[in-house]
C-alpha cells in the first residue's frame, strides 16, 4: 500500500482536477469566477442561465461521468479476472449489447417507459446475455473461443435491434440512435440518485470481493482449495457486473472501451495484478478516463458536442493494441 501512495495521490488529484475541469469547461463559455460563485457563493448575482447550466447540467454530468467510468472499469476488471482473460469486458462479451437490446425494446415498443423501466429492461437484457455466457463457459473451455461467442451474441443482439428499428417510427429510431451514441448528460439531477445508488452499490460489492478475486487468479481448483466457494463467488461477481453494466448502459447509453481498457491502464500503472490495489486504482482510473472523455466531446470554440462513443475508442483502442503487442513483456499475460 505504502509503495503505491504516489499512484493514489496522483489519481485522486486527477479526478479532482478533471471534475473541476468538467464544471468550468463546456460548450457555453462561463468565466471561472462565475462558476466558483455559482457553486460556493449562492450565485445570486450571476446570470440565471449560467446558474442553470452549471448546477443542472454540468454538475450532474460530471458526477455521472465519475460513477459511470468507475462502474464500467470495475466491471471490466471483474470479468477479466473471472474469465481469466485480459481481453474480456462488458462490451466484448456482449453484455452491453444485451442491455442495449433491452433498452431498444422498451424505447421502441413502450415509448412512455420511465427510466426505471429502462434500467429494468437493461438489467434483464444484460443478465440474459450473462447467463448465456455462463452456460457456454461450461462447454467451451478456451477463453478465446468464449470471447468470440460473446462477440457473436453481441452481433445477434445488434441484428435484433436493427429489425426492431426497421419497424419503428422515425422519431423513436432517432431517440434510440441518440441514446446509442453514449452521453453522460442524460442523467438529470432528478435521475442522479437512482443511477448513483446502483453504481455505488455495485462498486462497494466489488471492493468487498478483493480477497476471492486474488484467489481466482490461481484458477478454480486452487481457489477452491483455499476455501473459496467458487459457485457462489462466480454468481456474486456476475450479478455485480450485470448491475453495473446495466445501470450505466440504461442511463448513459452503451459506452465502449472503458470497461476493456481501464483495467489495463490500472495494471500498467501499478505493476501488479493484486486486486487489493487493482480494484481501487481501476475505479479511480475509470473515473479519470470518463471525465477526460467527457471534456473531449466538447469541440473548443463551437457549440457542437461529439458523441461520447466517438472519443472512448480513440483512448481505449491504442491501449489494447499496445498491450497485445507487448504481451510477452507484460507479466500479467504470462
Amino acid at each position: 500500500m505504502r509503495k503505491h501512495t504516489a499512484t493514489y495521490t496522483v489519481l485522486i488529484l486527477c479526478v479532482l482536477l478533471l471534475f473541476a475541469g468538467n464544471l468550468v469547461y463546456g460548450a457555453v463559455q462561463i468565466p471561472l469566477r462565475s462558476v466558483f460563485n455559482i457553486l460556493f457563493g449562492g450565485g445570486a448575482s450571476e446570470k440565471a442561465t449560467w446558474t442553470q447550466i452549471v448546477l443542472q447540467s454540468r454538475l450532474p454530468q460530471a458526477i455521472t461521468a465519475i460513477l459511470a467510468g468507475a462502474s464500467l472499469a470495475v466491471s471490466g476488471l471483474l470479468l477479466q479476472t473471472l474469465f481469466k482473460n485480459p481481453l474480456a469486458g462488458p462490451s466484448i462479451l456482449g453484455i452491453s449489447d444485451g442491455a442495449n437490446l433491452g433498452v431498444a425494446l422498451v424505447m421502441i415498443y413502450f415509448s412512455a417507459g420511465s427510466y426505471l423501466t429502462t434500467i429494468f429492461a437493461a438489467f434483464v437484457g444484460a443478465f440474459v446475455v450473462l447467463i448465456v455466457i455462463i452456460l457456454f463457459s461450461r462447454k467451451v473451455h478456451s477463453n478465446v473461443m468464449l470471447l468470440i461467442i460473446g462477440i457473436m451474441i453481441g452481433y445477434l443482439a445488434s441484428s435484433v435491434i436493427s429489425i426492431l428499428n426497421y419497424h419503428a417510427s422515425a422519431d423513436k429510431v432517432h431517440q434510440y440512435v441518440m441514446w446509442g451514441m453514449g452521453d453522460f448528460s442524460g442523467v438529470s439531477v432528478e435521475k442522479l440518485p437512482y443511477f448513483a445508488s446502483f453504481a455505488i452499490a455495485g462498486i462497494i460489492v466489488s471492493l468487498l470481493l478483493i480477497k476471492p478475486l486474488n484467489a481466482l487468479l490461481l484458477g478454480d481448483y486452487y481457489a477452491s482449495n483455499l476455501g473459496v466457494k467458487i459457485k457462489r463467488t462466480r454468481i456474486i461477481i456476475l450479478l455485480c457486473t450485470g448491475v453495473l453494466t446495466a445501470a450505466t448502459t440504461a442511463f448513459c447509453g452503451p459506452i465502449s472501451f472503458v470497461g476493456l481498457a481501464v483495467p489495463h491502464i490500472a495494471r500498467l500503472l501499478l505493476g501488479t495484478s493484486n486486486h487489493k490495489q487493482l480494484v481501487p486504482v481501476t475505479i479511480l482510473s475509470g473515473s479519470c478516463i470518463a471525465l477526460l472523455c467527457n471534456m473531449l466531446t466538447i469541440i473548443p470554440g463551437s457549440n457542437a458536442i461529439l458523441p461520447l462513443n466517438a472519443i472512448t475508442p480513440i483512448i481505449g483502442a491504442p491501449i489494447i493494441i499496445y498491450v497485445i503487442v507487448n504481451r510477452k513483456n507484460i507479466q500479467y499475460f504470462n
Binding site: L218, G219, Y222, N225, L226, G227, T272, F333
Partner: peptide
C-alpha cells in the same frame, strides 16, 4: 478442508502479475 489439504497442481494460472510473496500470502487465505 482448506486448512487440512494443500494442493500443487499443473493447471495454468493467471498469477504472472503478482509477486512470489503475494502468491505465498494467498496460502494464508
Amino acid at each position: 478442508l482448506s486448512t487440512l489439504v494443500g494442493v500443487v497442481l499443473t493447471e495454468k494460472t493467471s498469477a504472472g502479475g503478482i509477486s512470489v510473496y503475494e502468491l505465498v500470502s494467498l496460502g494464508r487465505y
